[in-house]
Simulated scan of single mutants.
Amino acid sequence: MSGVLSTVDARTKLVGQNRLELLLFNLGGTQQFAINVFKVQEVMRLPHLTEIPDRHPVVRGVTHLRGQTVPVVDLRQAIRMGPLKAPDDEATIIVTEYNMTVQAFLVGGVDRIVNMNWSEILPPPGGAGRQHYLTAITRIDDRIVEIIDVEKVLAEIAPYNMKLSDDVYDQELLQRIKGKDILIVDDSSVALQQMHSVLEPMGLNIVQANNGLEAHQLLMHWKEMGRNISEDLVMIITDAEMPEMDGYMLTTEIRRDPDLKDTFIILHTSLSGNFNKAMVEKVGCNGFLSKFAPEAMAKETQRLMREKLGMPPLG
């Protein structure tokens, strides 16, 4: 099954074209689910699992893959649909990398990979039964496919400590940026909460958009109002993967616009570091940060803010 996965080189060709590849799978029923192929390392039959003491209820156990101990999460149970009941000889795991950690998700079976445009990926409708664990939905072969918020699943299994000590913050800089606008763009409630927790102590006015299209429309509105966005806006911090318009395309559109092209942009993503270094260079971001690393986020955003304001770097 691993042969179905694209290489990194092939994936990078989608960047800046507002396209993505989805891996379709089921959780032991007829409903189809999906995650972005960018996050997937391989797909394989469920291997032997070793149970570990005091494990989270949705972690079935651990397995050893290529010298790594990898936790295996029952994805059906993690999104509160009850444990997966597929026979072991039919169950499959999807091995993924998020925030430079490797984990596997137990699923009922994998279908195929589909190549799509982000404009075909929509936010989940209000009142959707599993909206709490969805970042988006789409329609494939006249069927609704639900795209799971894996970041939320992982945050519930291993909660992140978002509280930072005061000495992380640059008081000289904070005096300069107090009350200024910063735009944060993400479709994940967990990621938005993290950004708020890091940025609010800086005294910034946080403006929030839930996807790249919403952010781009807001920037166009500010332009019509006559705002000097590259001056007024401290920076934009954007996710890579979002419904309707991804962070790469958002950055590309900003760089094409003479009134916006000097805006500082940080790509804030759970994709692997090496991949994002290439993508930052390709689309023209000022930097990137791994998600759920609040201290690193605070330091890098402040470093770039000092650079933008012409302040000398901290020793």
Rank of each mutant, 00 (worst) to 15 (best):
G127S: 08
L154V: 05
K163G: 07
H196Y: 15
S165L: 10
Q103T: 09
I182H: 05
Q217F: 06
F105C: 03
D166C: 07
T101N: 12
S188R: 00
E156W: 06
L106A: 10
P201K: 02
A104H: 00
V153Q: 02
I177Y: 03
T138K: 01
L183F: 03
L218D: 07
V153L: 02
I93P: 01
R139Q: 10
G126H: 12
Q194V: 14
T96V: 11
E172T: 12
S188T: 04
L213C: 08
D166E: 15
L204P: 05
E120G: 09
V145H: 09
W118L: 13
V114L: 07
N210W: 13
L183M: 08
N161S: 12
T135D: 14
T96Y: 01
A191I: 00
V198D: 01
D142S: 14
R176S: 11
N115A: 11
Q175K: 13
S189Q: 13
R176T: 11
E156R: 13
D181R: 14
I93W: 00
H196I: 06
M202D: 02
K178M: 09
E214T: 14
I206P: 12
V207E: 12
A91G: 11
N161Q: 13
Q194A: 15
T92M: 06
V150A: 02
M100D: 15
E151I: 00
E97P: 07
N99W: 05
T101I: 09
I157V: 13
T135A: 08
H216D: 13
L213K: 15
I140R: 09
N211W: 06
L164K: 01
V95Y: 01
G203Y: 01
Y133M: 09
V145K: 06
A155Y: 04
Q217D: 14
Y169K: 02
G126C: 10
G109T: 06
V110K: 01
K180D: 10
A128C: 07
A128K: 09
H216S: 13
F105K: 00
Q194D: 11
L154H: 04
I184Q: 03
Q171H: 11
E120D: 15
K180M: 14
Q131E: 13
A136V: 06
I184N: 00
L84A: 07
D89L: 08
M162Q: 14
N161G: 11
T92I: 10
W118N: 11
S165D: 14
N211I: 07
P159F: 02
L154R: 03
V153G: 02
R130M: 13
V185K: 02
I94G: 00
A136E: 05
W118D: 11
T101M: 11
P125T: 12
E97F: 09
G179L: 09
I184L: 02
V150G: 00
N211H: 15
L106F: 01
D181N: 14
I93M: 00
Q131R: 15
E120Y: 07
F105P: 01
M116A: 08
N115P: 05
P201E: 04
Q208D: 09
L106R: 03
E90M: 04
N210R: 15
L84W: 02
T101R: 14
M100A: 14
G126K: 15
A86L: 09
E120M: 06
D181L: 10
P123I: 08
L192V: 06
A86H: 05
E146V: 03
H196Q: 15
W118A: 12
